[in-house]
């Protein structure tokens, strides 16, 4: 159609993780665990490394 790609259900992992790890609600207090204190930089690096791995080893 146009210059816009509607990704819709085929969402890139990075877009999803951007939201799930930096957006959404973190309610402190009663919560036992949550990904809030996860080292996002380290995780981000892993996403990148994983993306590179996939590029390097196409199925």
């Amino acid at each position: 159609m146009s210059a816009v790609t509607v990704a819709d259900r085929d969402v890139a992992l990075i877009d999803l993780l951007d939201r799930l790890l930096q957006g959404g609600v973190v309610i402190q207090g009663q919560i036992t665990l949550c990904a809030a204190d996860i080292d996002l930089v380290a995780l981000d690096l892993r996403v990148v490394v994983s993306a590179i791995d996939r590029l390097a080893a196409p199925k």
Partner: peptide, 22 residues
């Protein structure tokens, strides 16, 4: 209202308490 990835409550009581308080 979406929760952040891996938000886990230990039990029903903890979750209900949170919902009640907030």
């Amino acid at each position: 209202i979406p929760m952040r990835l891996c938000t886990v409550y230990q039990d029903d009581a903890g979750l209900r308490r949170m919902l009640d308080e907030h």
